[in-house]
């Protein structure tokens, strides 16, 4: 299943932009549902549609998609059922490793989960960031979405830091 899932992953193309925007809003919506402190701003959709084409043109950003099965109709393109985004950064010289690969987002539609697509997206993204020169890879996940944390840990990542939050109107 892992090989099959991996073969469904490819680099995103301009023609994927609309599907990517839809998937990203579903991803952000699921995060907001699990963690209300990360709920969406009113113009999140518009910002996503503006920003995705910019991201796609950036050398330090990696956008990949997972294709589902084509419908079988002539010339029917395989639908995009998942995506992942990463960023390669050179950070200031505070900690020893300054070339950091960040796993920013990974999402697979609910009805195709359990087929290894999220793991394949993570593997391909990890390899792409490593190929750019990343010395360490980092991924942040809401505590409330602990399934994401478990998947990332299975890929060899280990907890580094907790991010805590406080509202100032409760001080």
């Amino acid at each position: 299943m892992a090989t099959e899932a991996r073969s469904a992953v490819r680099a995103a193309r301009r023609s994927d932009l609309q599907a990517l925007a839809d998937l990203r809003m579903r991803f952000l919506g699921e995060v907001a549902h699990a963690e209300p402190r990360l709920r969406l701003l009113a113009d999140a959709r518009a910002r996503t549609e503006q920003t995705l084409p910019v991201w796609m043109g950036q050398d330090d950003r990696i956008l990949i998609v997972a294709e589902g099965e084509a419908s079988g109709e002539d010339d029917a393109a395989a639908p995009i059922v998942g995506y992942a985004m990463g960023l390669f950064s050179t950070v200031p010289p505070v900690l020893r490793h300054t070339h950091v690969g960040e796993i920013l987002e990974i999402y697979v539609l609910p009805d195709v989960r359990g087929k290894g697509l999220a793991g394949a997206l993570l593997d391909v993204l990890t390899e792409a960031l490593t190929g750019r020169g990343a010395e360490v890879l980092r991924a942040a996940a809401p505590i409330a979405g602990n399934a994401d944390v478990a998947r990332i840990e299975r890929a060899g990542y280990q907890p580094l830091q907790y991010v805590l939050e406080r509202r100032l109107d409760t001080v």
Binding site: T126, T130, A134, V136, R138, G156, R166, V171
Partner: peptide, 23 residues
């Protein structure tokens, strides 16, 4: 946590070289 802060996210890290760094 005693000061009223709540966990929001966890940041995970993986070293590229095997055995490079561990938690």
């Amino acid at each position: 946590r005693s000061m009223g802060w709540d966990d929001l996210e966890v940041v995970l890290q993986k070293g590229v070289e095997p055995g490079q760094e561990t938690a």
